[in-house]
Amino acid sequence: MANITMVSPSPTISQPSNVVLFFRYLRRNKGLALGVIILVALFLFTVIGLLVVNPKHAYPLSAGLKQPPSLKYPFGTDFFGRDLLAAMVVGMWQTAFIGLLAGGIGTLVGVVLGFTSAYFGGWIDAAVRTVCQILTPIPVLLIQVVVAGSLDKRDVTIFTMALIVAMLAWMGPTLVIRAQVMTMKERQFVAVAKLSGVSDMGIIFREILPNLLPFIAAAFVGQVFSAVFASFYLAVLGLGPLREPLLGNIIWAAQSQGAFFNGWWWWPLEPAFAMILILGALALVNMGLDELANPRVRRSE
């Protein structure tokens, strides 16, 4: 699934078309390796799960009630009669979908705007920066809450959730990328390239972009992280698509039914750990990418 696309650009950076080298590198970079392994495992869990499990069982009244994990229900069932295994499979897929879509949109817009702004400067920079800076201090969650709250309930779907989350998520990456390009512009290698007559595009794609990849990757991971986060918060406030087994929705439902107190510990803990795995793996990958993409660091090891 889309999880993989995040990792796949890496080989092209380290050693184009040499997958063996990449795996050899993974052995040295344990953090990245662990992150990738977790992501692959989650990916396999979701894909195999979608093939094996009946997605209908992720919805209420489809399984036994409040069953602890057993052979029949490996992940147990919840108060509303969802099979939590099916709910986790579908919820994982939906959470990943929201995260990747919203994170992708936010990062893409941010990179394009950040580059344009910082590299060309002048009124473009002024305009982009002013708009970003004016919008940045505004607490995004509240705007999201207000927007989500004024939508018709039938229009709140996984897809609109992603759009609501992405809508105000591009200013952060824009400013970060812009700040980096600004510093980068002052560096010697860019000045040298400029003096030797390399075109704007050439400088952007050949000199600056490769150096910025750690930051773009970090921005993307950050965006996915905050997208999952934001959708979770909306869910907690009862503004998400309530029926869907989004990881956030499951935790919220468990909380509001007093799952811990009633002894149904598996109900909130499973999605909580799934969330931890997703975000933890992303963090590890992000870290690994920093090393992988910065040749000088590798040299020094």
């Binding site: 953090g31 931890i276 795995l277 933890g280 963090a283």
Partner: peptide, 25 residues
Amino acid sequence: ATPFILLTGVPPVIMGILLLFFIGF
């Protein structure tokens, strides 16, 4: 730094719920 990086995966909300459950309850 490593344990803290691993904990990044735990949003404060979930961390709160877990702390409340294990340490409080």
